[in-house]
Design a protein around this nucleic acid. Structure first.
Lengths: 323, 323
DNA sequence: TTGTATGCGTTATCAT
DNA sequence: ATGATAACGCATACAA
């Protein structure tokens, strides 16, 4: 406890000098410097950061917006951000939105009220123009491909990834393909769906609206998807699944029910989370942690010089046993 | 942008009145109230929370201290906290320590510097007396069994869990048991090890120092553990594993190498994460999300009235196919 | 019901 | 090299 005035008094110097010492500024005599640190020691003093924030007009913290904390994908992403933030002494504030627009807006409000210096958004619920209306309020980094000259972005080209995936499945002889994605809307999902129809048409592979399964997040979802697949009149011979957990659920349930993978049903998974290696899933390697790391770096870039960067990260298919 | 003074001027009222309206205090005439909100609207005003924090002496935020963000266990725990925090409008600041003492201490410093009102600690790296020396600085909640009348705790009785586990394995005919735990030290690990030796002795089951595997966090670790198990001179016929992910790694690798589970090696897993159901793991159901939820509630209890609570949460074994 | 004055703890400007 | 003092933006005790 105690404040800088008490420190100054205790050390026999002015508040300014105390502040200088505390902030490691030059031009303070060795004696006074020592006196101040001694006072800090004696009074067990620590700066009140809230006062610092108010005085500086910033907080050295960034808000991290994601839908779910209990999905490995976001855990890994957050991990990447946290590691990087540590280097800069930036603290992290998490906003778990559950894809509720209102919670996302609360995060934006915190940006506006200067509680965070910036916002790194993994996946958003609101329309883009809502988000963009907060551009002036702080530094916004988005992990999706958005064509806005005001915000930095780092993302995976999901269109291209799906394109490659469909080609690969076609090359392996699968001529009817379904997909499991997170949401029906959202930039990434839109890109995927577009790629799905376009590429299927291009390669003369069957693709159907009924073969698009949404709300796939967990293993349990995967299990259900498998049953939906089984109940289909006409069944695709392969599925592209945008989460290793979901894929794991599908594969394990399939094998339980006597369906051969990839014989009866091929699975091209995504993320290449450690589980993919364990269960031997053919999976698209998404550099999630790097995505987190880079997004934080873009935030830093943005804070100095307002540099806007758009960056694409590569994803490669790792061949294993489910295709 | 703008501040409360501008709002007051724009609305033609005093700063105090503006503040009253902004904070929904009574005793303000309808006209002035409307005038203030209108001004807020016109000037697109938002409070500067840093000033609020400074003025109030608190931040409405709590720090969450955990070792790793990319482990499902902590993701689930954080999820539980986040859901609860949302209800109270409390924001969350995450500190990923990687079990580095210095990072943990940084979190404690933030408590001291009033950047957070409290700290919820999942698993700590530092000695208890280091942590306890910060008790005065804010509200500390710990998710382990600690006998300190100053801090609230919510935890699982890991001694009892291990005891039950060993008994169950014994009942199923396994007479030599090994364990896979996270760390060698740490309260929970210590409780487990103590239970391990004590109970093995009690039940005449074989337990050995060499059968204690530490640093088990991921599926990959599980894979390696399996190989270590295989290279053992004398091999335990069952393992208690304190993470479903690790257990999954062991089981899948074992089956790959032609080892039967539970025939050649029984696995009693822990956490009962969704993956346990999918892979059919016999697992101890740890109410992780509830642990998070309760820990936040204890924080709230603590803020009003400094009520200290010690609470134990139950864990039950869910019988499936690996024991 | 309304307003004035003061404090919260720090940093930055400007002298000296 | 050092120190007074004015911001920073808000909340609140006190007065009216």
């Amino acid at each position: 406890m105690g404040n800088i005035r008490e420190i100054a008094k205790e050390a026999g110097v002015s508040v300014t000098t105390a502040s200088r010492v505390l902030n490691h500024h030059p031009y303070v005599s060795v004696e006074k410097r020592q006196a101040v640190w001694a006072a800090v020691e004696r009074l067990n003093y620590t700066k009140n950061v809230n006062a610092v924030h108010l005085s500086n007009g910033k907080t050295n913290s960034v808000g991290v917006v994601l839908p779910f904390l209990n999905l490995p994908y976001y855990g890994e992403w957050l991990h990447g951000i946290a590691e990087e933030a540590l280097k800069y002494g930036t603290s992290l504030q998490v906003f778990q939105t559950n894809y509720q627009k209102s919670i996302e807006i609360e995060a934006l409000q915190k940006l506006k009220s200067r509680q965070v210096d910036g916002l790194i958004i993994a996946s958003r619920a609101n329309e883009w123009d809502i988000i963009s209306s907060f551009e002036e309020e702080g530094h916004i980094i988005i992990c999706e491909r958005i064509d806005d000259p005001q915000v930095s972005t780092v993302y995976i080209d999901h269109y291209d990834v799906f394109k490659k995936g469909i080609r690969m499945l076609k090359d392996h002889g699968y001529d009817s393909i379904g997909v499991c994605i997170h949401r029906r809307f959202g930039t990434n999902s839109q890109e995927r769906i577009k790629a799905y129809f376009t590429e299927c048409e291009m390669l003369q592979v069957k693709g159907r609206e009924e073969w698009i399964f949404t709300d796939c997040y967990t293993m349990k979802d995967g299990k259900e998807i498998f049953h939906k697949w089984q109940q289909l009149q006409e069944r695709p011979s392969a599925l592209i699944v945008t989460s290793d957990q979901v894929a794991a659920g599908i594969v394990s349930e399939a094998r339980l029910k006597g369906i051969e993978v990839p014989g009866d049903l091929a699975i091209l998974s995504s993320d290449n989370h450690p589980i993919a290696e364990i269960i031997n899933l053919t999976s698209i390697d998404i550099p999630v942690r790097k995505l987190g790391k880079r997004s934080f770096e873009l935030f830093i870039e943005n804070t100095k010089g307002n540099t806007i960067i758009h960056e694409e990260l590569d994803a490669l298919i790792v061949k294993r046993g489910t295709v």
